[in-house]
């Protein structure tokens, strides 16, 4: 996804962080988080609750939208002791992951903490996603057809 130009830097960073958290592997996320060794006090404002997101496609791929079907999703909102709130929504039903993502979102509202989280959690998650994608792309590319022309006849 490309960010709309109107978004400020802070919002773009937040969106990027949440997108990586959503797509990242849950066990790697837990591992990175535990490595940080922080355990902030926080309360759940909402959820984590499981629900549905209706997925939309576009007619012909690029035309008017239509509703394709639904997917399970989990969302959570947390409040830190200092009142900062964090939010997260992730496809699937992993409540622990979504709660942790919301906590990280809240913590990252503090600039110094954001830098620490980006380095210790977001960057490794993103790297793992890139490795997985590159691996799958290479596997797909290996099935690419290389056409060659056979010349038949004399003329």
């Amino acid at each position: 996804m490309t960010a709309p130009e109107s978004m400020n830097e802070h919002a773009q960073a937040r969106r990027h962080r949440l997108s990586v958290l959503a797509q990242g592997d849950a066990s790697l996320l837990a591992e990175c988080w535990n490595g940080l060794g922080i355990d902030p006090e926080c309360e759940l404002v909402r959820g984590p609750e499981i629900g549905l997101v209706a997925l939309r496609g576009r007619m012909g791929g690029g035309g008017a939208p239509f509703n394709l079907g639904e997917a399970t999703a989990t969302r959570a909102s947390v409040r830190l002791a200092d009142g900062t709130t964090g939010h997260a929504m992730v496809l699937g039903r992993d409540k622990a992951k979504v709660k942790l993502a919301a906590v990280i979102d809240a913590l990252a509202q503090d600039e110094a903490m954001a830098a620490r989280l980006d380095e210790a959690v977001i960057a490794p998650l993103q790297a793992a996603i890139a490795v997985r994608d590159a691996g799958r792309a290479a596997e797909t590319t290996a099935t690419k057809v290389d056409f060659f022309t056979m010349v038949r006849g004399d003329d």
Binding site: Q23, L55, G57, G61, A73, H87, G92
Partner: peptide, 25 residues
């Protein structure tokens, strides 16, 4: 494909994961 949902709490859309799809033209 990535699935993005507008989150009113944040004021913008975030990617919440991916789904595998088959498309035919």
């Amino acid at each position: 494909v990535e699935v993005a949902v507008d989150m009113p709490e944040l004021g913008f859309a975030v990617t919440i994961g991916r789904v595998q799809l088959t498309e035919c033209q």
